[in-house]
């Protein structure tokens, strides 16, 4: 669907400083190497809430507005700190948006962040709000020894939308979602770690939904891959987005800035939004961007943007994605277990 009068006014990310190399995980389980180089790990005092707050403050800096102007806060995550009690209220309070604010948490595995972005776009486009904040952040868990342990990472991004084209970073041009009931990955209540369908997470889940969302949004726009300068796909590893890009006809250059999973892992609800942020850190006004997320369960959101003049003076108002990736401290597997609460303390 074509989007009218919705613009990205601010964006910001937060990525914890700790990294564990896949080889440090693999060594513990008798494997040679994992699917990525290294992943970002939340510290002892970090969780999806603190990452979301930091990303939101960075987005506000770029938007150049006070938090009290935010009228909508939607938070997408699958690692909420409470089963019942919204994180969105904590974010809203921390940025000063309370009490005149609509707030809720979204869950859709890895695509709750882009769903929040779509809903915020709808709020401002329909004139139900002037400024809306969408955040996708996770501190994803993988069962020790499971394939997911190599990639499940921590990080997030926040986006502020409005109807003002003045000083906007990008316009939101088109949105499309492709959703089915496909049980490729899930976590039951009170379970610490998710279950997944191994190879079933590939063809019928990730590839089908991402491919269909990308094809349908391009059909709707009358566009083809060559019409976009940059594209970001959900990135549970490095191989999946590379393969889907090649199948759809996108080049390595087009996916270059958006593909970060090799260096920070899969940040779940943060993955596509953080990749998009790195594109905005580098893109030139007038360039076209396609973002396609994927959430298990399953669905894909495709969103098309056009970069605007505001990007050049806004991007330096908050730390870049690369600066967050660069400030890294390596930890060993034992420290990783402690940070992620995987050691039984007997409490």
């Amino acid at each position: 669907m074509k989007v009218r009068n919705a613009f990205v006014k601010g964006y910001g990310v937060a990525i914890p400083r700790y990294r564990i190399k896949d080889e440090a995980i693999a060594k513990n389980w008798g494997s040679s190497r994992g699917p990525i180089e290294e992943k970002a790990v939340a510290g002892l005092d970090e969780d999806s809430t603190t990452i979301a707050i930091e990303a939101s403050r960075n987005a506000l800096r770029r938007a150049g507005i006070d938090g009290e102007k935010i009228e909508v806060v939607f938070f997408g995550s699958e690692s909420k700190v409470y089963a019942v009690k919204p994180t969105a209220t904590i974010i809203a309070e921390a940025i000063g948006a309370t009490p005149q604010v609509s707030a809720a948490d979204f869950e859709f595995a890895c695509k709750a962040g882009t769903e929040a972005m779509k809903c915020c776009t709808a709020y401002v486009s329909s004139e139900l709000a002037d400024y809306a904040l969408a955040v996708g952040a996770d501190t994803a868990q993988g069962r020790p020894g499971d394939e997911l342990e190599y990639t499940a990472a921590s990080g997030g991004a926040a986006y502020i939308f409005s109807r003002e084209p003045e000083n906007a970073i990008a316009s939101v041009d088109e949105m499309y979602s492709f959703t089915t009931d496909t049980p490729d990955f899930w976590r039951r209540p009170e379970q610490k770690y998710p279950m997944h369908g191994f190879r079933f997470t590939g063809e019928p889940a990730y590839f089908k939904h991402v491919t269909m969302a990308a094809i349908e949004i391009m059909n709707s726009m009358g566009a083809s891959p060559k019409d976009f300068n940059h594209v970001v796909f959900h990135q549970p590893n490095v191989k999946f987005p590379q393969n889907v890009a090649e199948d759809l006809g996108f080049t390595k250059e087009q996916i270059g800035y958006g593909l970060l999973s090799g260096r920070i892992g899969n940040t779940y609800s943060g993955a596509t939004p953080v990749g998009l942020a790195n594109i905005l850190d580098h893109a030139k006004p007038g360039e076209k961007i396609l973002a396609v997320s994927f959430g298990s369960g399953a669905g894909s959101d495709a969103i098309a943007f056009t970069v605007m003049d505001g990007v050049e003076k806004k991007r330096d108002l908050a730390p870049s994605v690369e600066s967050y990736i660069a400030r890294k401290v390596y930890i060993d597997y034992a420290t990783y277990l402690r940070f992620r609460g995987k050691i039984d303390m007997g409490d």
Binding site: L44, D45, E46, D47, T49, T50, I53, E54, V81, Y82, I90, A94, D347
Partner: peptide, 17 residues
């Protein structure tokens, strides 16, 4: 300044930021 988890009141209690 950053906002971080100050403490949690056990596994059932409030998380204080």
């Amino acid at each position: 300044m950053v906002t971080r988890k100050l403490r949690a009141y056990g596994k059932n209690g409030l998380i204080i930021y």
